[in-house]
Design a protein around this nucleic acid. Structure first.
Length: 425
RNA sequence: GGAGGGAUGGCAGAGCGGUUGAAUGCACUAGUCUUGAAAACUAGCAUGGUUUAACGACCAUCCAGGGUUCGAAUCCCUGUCCCUCCA
């Protein structure tokens, strides 16, 4: 959520900022609503003041044993007037809120303007793309010939975009998860968090998935519905909802491993082959709660933490700066890490690291207390995948494949794989 | 499954429907005292919003949402969460 003051005081600026996002803002409507809001709010508060003052004097008069009937008569019509004013105010504030909630974050100045992922900028590349002296298989063929990946079983048990893993490949995915968690905890100073996989509306509102992106979520109906988390970002970031954090605790750095659930509405036909785009997948997520003046630096640092995993696994990747059109709703700036997939002969997203500035914090009412002023200030939130485990599994399979269809276990994963050095049928 | 009790400021914990945004203690901040520290004493210390050039004034908030009332932390209803006891 944007600063309401900014929207009010400089709607033209906000309009320009929204245009980079492909969103429009009706400045005349905002101005008109704001004018009405001001008048009605002042009126309402004046009436409230009148009511409070008379109630107080009635109390005083009564305690002195005076006749209060004349005072009661004088406020008899106040109640209705006040009720009407309050209803008006609620109505107009609801209107303004629904506009505000639908506005995306203002993009950082260094985010390039562009329409879609074609205009993203490659900032750097790491690793060398492997040369195979045999016909490269993708993870689907590899997995099926190793009897470790079964899409038919996934479809039978649940439906399209579900998969089952078994045997050493299932273990490899678990090994990746453990390796990522341990690295972030031991090397990068994160605190592990275990969190609910079902969350309420308030949490999803706080991180920006609601109200605008409900169709991307799996919802369990009910009076107060639960939603399956699309990312651990939601429950982990909501740890600080409605909280004022002590300065000495900052920055907070959490790592969590969770499954993620996405409806993939609007992705019909995309990535139907393989386990690139699933309704359910594993992810290790990094979340940082930081002071405003640290968020840029720590965003870089968090991205590096994700890169360290790819480097430890010796997986070639590139770092992309997302252009305006490809940057998500809540982010001010996003880096994507794209891993090389030999089976697709291309780079594919494996991590997305975003700085949200105070956009989520304002929705979450997440603040820290600045000891200099003694006052609470909004935190900045940063998060990134570190990494998407399912896609990392694919990347390891395809990059570590051998001529006979077996898969070498990366060195750093060996401690997690028992005696297995190579995955074979 | 049945019966009760509770939710109040960073924490603990008071609060007959009436100048209660809220006693008190702890914590915290500043000061006095001290060579320094501790102790003691003094003062300050919730959050959000409206309005103002500013000082300030005002409004809202005692789990959430409704209701009763001139007036609600306090009474009523609904919900959420916590706890205790019985089976």
């Amino acid at each position: 959520m944007l600063d309401p003051q900014l929207l009010r005081n400089d709607p033209e600026y906000v309009k320009k900022a929204m245009q980079r996002h492909g969103a429009d803002l009706d400045v005349d409507l905002i101005t008109a609503l704001e004018t009405r809001r001001k008048a009605i709010q002042v009126k309402t508060q004046t009436l409230q003041n009148e009511r409070n003052t008379s109630a107080k004097s009635i109390g005083i008069a009564k305690s002195k044993g005076e006749d209060i009937q004349p005072l009661l008569d004088s406020v008899s019509q106040l109640g209705d007037e006040l009720k009407a004013a309050e209803a008006d105010l609620n109505d107009i504030q609801a209107q303004m809120q629904s506009i505000q909630y639908a506005l995306p974050n203002i993009l950082s100045d260094d985010v390039p303007t562009g329409k879609d992922e074609e205009q993203n900028i490659e900032l750097r590349k790491w690793g060398s793309i492997p040369n195979f002296d045999f016909d490269v298989k993708d993870h689907v063929d590899l997995g099926q010939s190793l009897s470790g990946i079964d899409f038919e079983a996934g479809a039978k048990i649940a439906g399209a975009r579900f998969v089952t893993l078994s045997g050493s490949l299932a273990r490899l995915q678990r090994a990746l998860t453990q390796f990522m968690l341990d690295t972030h905890i031991d090397q990068h100073g994160y605190r592990e968090a275990y969190v609910p996989y079902l969350v309420n509306k308030d949490s999803l509102f706080g991180t920006g998935q609601l109200p605008k992106f409900e169709e991307d979520l799996f919802k369990m109906s009910g009076d107060s519905p639960y939603y399956l988390i699309p990312t651990a970002e939601v429950p982990v970031t909501n740890l600080v909802r409605d909280a004022i954090i002590n300065a000495d605790k900052m920055p907070l750095k959490y790592v969590a491993h969770t499954p993620c659930f996405r409806s993939e509405a609007g992705a019909y036909g995309r990535d139907m082959r393989g386990m690139i785009r699933q309704h359910q997948f594993e992810k290790v997520e990094l979340v940082q709660i930081v002071k405003a003046d640290e968020s840029e630096r720590l965003h870089e640092e968090l991205t590096q933490h994700a890169e360290n995993i790819l480097q430890a696994l010796n997986l070639p990747y590139r770092l992309m700066l997302l252009c305006s059109g490809d940057t998500g709703f809540s982010a001010t700036k996003t880096y994507d890490l794209e891993v090389w997939l030999p089976g697709q002969d291309s780079y594919r997203e494996i991590s997305s690291c975003s700085n949200f500035n105070d956009f989520q914090a304002r929705r979450l009412k997440a603040r820290w207390r600045n000891p200099e002023t003694g006052k609470p200030e909004l935190v900045h939130t940063i998060n990134g995948s570190g990494l998407a485990v399912g896609r990392t599994l694919i990347a390891v399979m395809e990059n570590y494949q051998q001529a006979d269809g077996s898969i070498k276990v990366p060195d750093v994963l060996k401690p997690y794989m028992g005696a297995i050095e190579t995955i074979t049928l």
